[in-house]
Design a protein around this nucleic acid. Sequence first.
DNA 1: CCCGGATTCCCACTCAATGGTAATCCTGCT
DNA 2: AGCAGGATTACCATTGAGTGGGAATCCGGG
Lengths: 261, 261
Amino acid sequence: MANSASGESIIRRFIRIISAFDDKHTSMSVAELSRRTGLPVTTTYRLVDELLLERLLERDSNGNIELGTRMWELASRGSKTQGLREAALPFMEDVQSVVQHSTTLGVLDSDEVLYIERLGSTSTIMDITKVAGRLPVHATSSGMVLLANSPSAYQDMILSRPLTKYTETTLTDPAALRRHLAEVRQRGFAAMPGVIVPESSGIAVPVYGPDNTVVAALSVVVPRDEENAAARVPLLMAAARGISRALGWRAKLKGTLRQSH
Amino acid sequence: MANSASGESIIRRFIRIISAFDDKHTSMSVAELSRRTGLPVTTTYRLVDELLLERLLERDSNGNIELGTRMWELASRGSKTQGLREAALPFMEDVQSVVQHSTTLGVLDSDEVLYIERLGSTSTIMDITKVAGRLPVHATSSGMVLLANSPSAYQDMILSRPLTKYTETTLTDPAALRRHLAEVRQRGFAAMPGVIVPESSGIAVPVYGPDNTVVAALSVVVPRDEENAAARVPLLMAAARGISRALGWRAKLKGTLRQSH
DNA sequence: CCCGGATTCCCACTCAATGGTAATCCTGCT
DNA sequence: AGCAGGATTACCATTGAGTGGGAATCCGGG
């Protein structure tokens, strides 16, 4: 053996380690960490020791390992996500104060929607989004909005892979999805009843960045039986516009309202 | 030369790299990164390449390097900070809706206050707190609350180092600070007029965790000239109690109300 | 006292990581 | 077009940081 029998770099192993933590596993023993990551026991101990030293990991009161506050700090303070989040939060509060269910802000990351902020009670069965949580593009209103405003190569990539059918109403047929995307692009919002959880509906609108591309989706989740959920669209649009403006976007002067590519 | 002439581990260098990014420097060229981190050019390129591959770093539209969304995601989803933040947010919104200036949630990290959430407009000169930003313990109301509820060894450590005097009213004398801490402990809140910025006042109260220790400080910043800022204390206390309860804290049954160290 | 798992200690091996030097690619300026 | 200055990529000889199996030790519960 030598530097990593498996040929893995330290960075990759570091990622394995921090990836072992999620909202369901916020702390664990080193041995368990070794098991979860699949790294050799000794190696795990050595690496963890160093990460503890650097405060990227910490020990809790039981001696278990958890992600260090410093880790969060370093990752947060310089990230573009932070700017987006801060710009959006006030407007999200406004929306939340009216809609009362849950309001989320999502971005596209690799092939999924990553939620970077969320307001509303956490306990609802109705809404499974979490901050720093992911959901598939094709089964969320946020995903549809983001996909509808993505380059066609990206759309093709997403639509060409197997799409999970979560409920009766989940669209999984590429052609049907494309039609739906066209609609979303034209109307400027996505409304999807019960695509991932039968009893709820998602409504999402795009948020624009300075270069007039769509950078995020603002969305609310409401009970499916709620009448005219679409009545929420103007509210959402106004909020999204506010966020966009805070991000440096300027309304188009004149001409068509269709966004570039 | 061999594995790091400077004897530095990859982890430490990785930290140097992500530390080079902050809210003022969200993206930069690799060469600049090399300069900022002090790492050899070649080494920086090699390391950055790998981090790009792992998506801990990303290239923006100009080809500059920025922190990757994945970095934020991994650091956020498993962190205890996240749980605290989520528990606190609804209550912070309530406070913010009444106080209107700015509401923050801070924790103690090494020898400073680290702010993990913040509501209110960002542009105020009055309030310099930022999410994932730090301020010194002795010059903030949050810091005083947290310090007042810390082990005395920690208090000694903080009070024994040189304390910056930001304004006329900043306390820098250890003895005076100790008296103030005793007051804070007894009253259950800290109110500090213009300790870091002359024209504003901070008011902070403790947030308790399940084991009845203080885990965070909830605070508002208001203009200093505002009459009876202390009138805000009950509001803050009620909110802090709500957060504490959401974290699993149960009110003491009976007996003294003094909290254990 | 015993048992099983977690943790720490030990150590010989070796290739991943290193960082100079030099070539190449840009980009703006003349 | 040609030039200047910086950013980026390519090359490569060198070596100690990283590795991981194994054994000893610690610890908590029954």
